Amino acid sequence: MTYIATFYSHYGAIQFRKNCEKMHLEALVMPVPRNLSSSCGTCVRFAAEGEFPEKNEEVEQIVRIEDSGYVCIYHADEE
């Protein structure tokens, strides 16, 4: 499955991408899609089956990409 994680800072996005790479997950830092809001404007698109990279305090949300759009699977405000 493919996911997008948004962040409160650019630094958080870079750290998350590095964590993905350590887990041998394909990850790409890119601008946040227009219909997802983000504090810093940078997101990480990554593919994962099962185990996710560790979330830190910089992760704003994680959405799963589906044919019908985005499905939120984590949002920091909901914890």
Rank of each mutant, 00 (worst) to 15 (best):
K18R: 13
N19P: 01
N19Q: 13
N19A: 13
N19V: 01
E21K: 15
K22N: 07
K22F: 01
M23D: 07
H24E: 15
H24I: 09
L25R: 14
L25E: 09
E26Y: 13
A27W: 04
L28T: 12
L28Y: 13
L28V: 14
L28F: 14
V29R: 10
V29A: 07
M30H: 13
M30K: 15
P31N: 08
V32K: 06
V32A: 04
V32N: 05
P33H: 05
P33G: 02
R34Q: 13
N35I: 03
S38I: 04
S38K: 08
S38F: 03
S39L: 08
S39T: 11
C40R: 11
C40K: 06
C40F: 06
C40H: 02
G41W: 02
T42V: 15
T42Y: 09
T42W: 08
T42Q: 07
C43F: 02
V44S: 07
R45H: 10
R45Y: 03
A48M: 09
E49R: 15
E49L: 05
G50K: 10
G50N: 10
F52Y: 09
F52P: 00
F52H: 09
P53F: 02
P53C: 05
E57Q: 15
E57R: 15
V59W: 04
V59Q: 03
V59A: 02
E60D: 07
E60A: 04
Q61R: 15
I62Q: 01
I65H: 01
I65Q: 08
I65S: 00
I65R: 08
D67Y: 09
D67P: 09
S68G: 07
G69F: 06
Y70N: 09
V71G: 00
C72K: 13
C72W: 01
C72D: 11
C72E: 14
I73G: 12
I73S: 10
